[in-house]
């Protein structure tokens, strides 16, 4: 009986010790992890069955009609009031000129005049630009801020998602993916 009690006690303390050590390492690794949450890319297809309006001629079209004829599409959410978007322009232009991707711009919560001015000033990398006055289209894509960029294939599958402005590495990566 005494012996059993002793074994019970040592098993119990062993469990506690193991739990303590595990917790220590979990917290230690947690310290190095990024605390700000960013959604991961899902392998899901994006939802495309909704109406969009062109920025320039203000005509309406269903978005799934837009995504036809090319192997890759790049959807870039931007706005004239977004500072990082200005720096991003040159990368988008680079992609427009050197890849076969269809560049689609979503103008997020902007005024038409300001948007057109912005394109004049920093260059227009887009084949088609749609307006997202209320931010609802961006939510359809699963975006939550500007700028955000989605690389999509002809099955409407999201291959890559970039939160924040693109940089050299991203451009390199996009070029690599679209070459094959």
């Amino acid at each position: 009986m005494q012996f059993l009690e002793k074994i019970k006690k040592s098993i119990f303390s062993l469990i506690i010790l193991i739990l303590l050590i595990i917790s220590f390492f979990v917290f230690k690794f947690a310290l190095q992890k990024e605390k700000i949450y960013t959604p991961k890319i899902t392998d899901n297809q994006i939802f495309t069955d909704f109406k969009v309006q062109f920025l320039i001629d203000e005509k309406q079209v269903n978005f799934n009609k837009v995504l036809t004829g090319k192997n890759f599409y790049l959807i870039n959410i931007w706005s004239s009031w977004c500072e990082p978007c200005k720096d991003e322009s040159k990368y988008l232009l680079e992609l427009k000129n050197n890849t076969p991707i269809m560049m689609i711009g979503i103008n997020y919560k902007d005024k038409k005049k300001n948007a057109l001015n912005f394109l004049k000033l920093y260059g227009d990398p887009f084949e088609k630009i749609f307006v997202d006055k209320q931010g609802l289209i961006s939510i359809n894509f699963g975006a939550y801020g500007v700028p955000e960029t989605f690389l999509i294939n002809n099955d409407n599958k999201v291959l890559k998602k970039y939160i924040g402005p693109l940089n050299d590495e991203d451009v390199y990566e996009i070029k690599k993916i679209t070459k094959n």
């Binding site: 310290l31 190095q32 605390k35």
Partner: peptide, 29 residues
């Protein structure tokens, strides 16, 4: 340590977290 994603936490460097964590382990042990 700023390990939490909360309204109240302040940005901190991880070395502080490691110190308190180790110290905490020592005390508990």
């Amino acid at each position: 340590s700023g390990i939490l994603n909360s309204v109240h936490t302040f940005a901190n460097d991880p070395s502080r977290g490691i110190y308190i964590l180790t110290f905490l382990l020592v005390l508990v042990l």
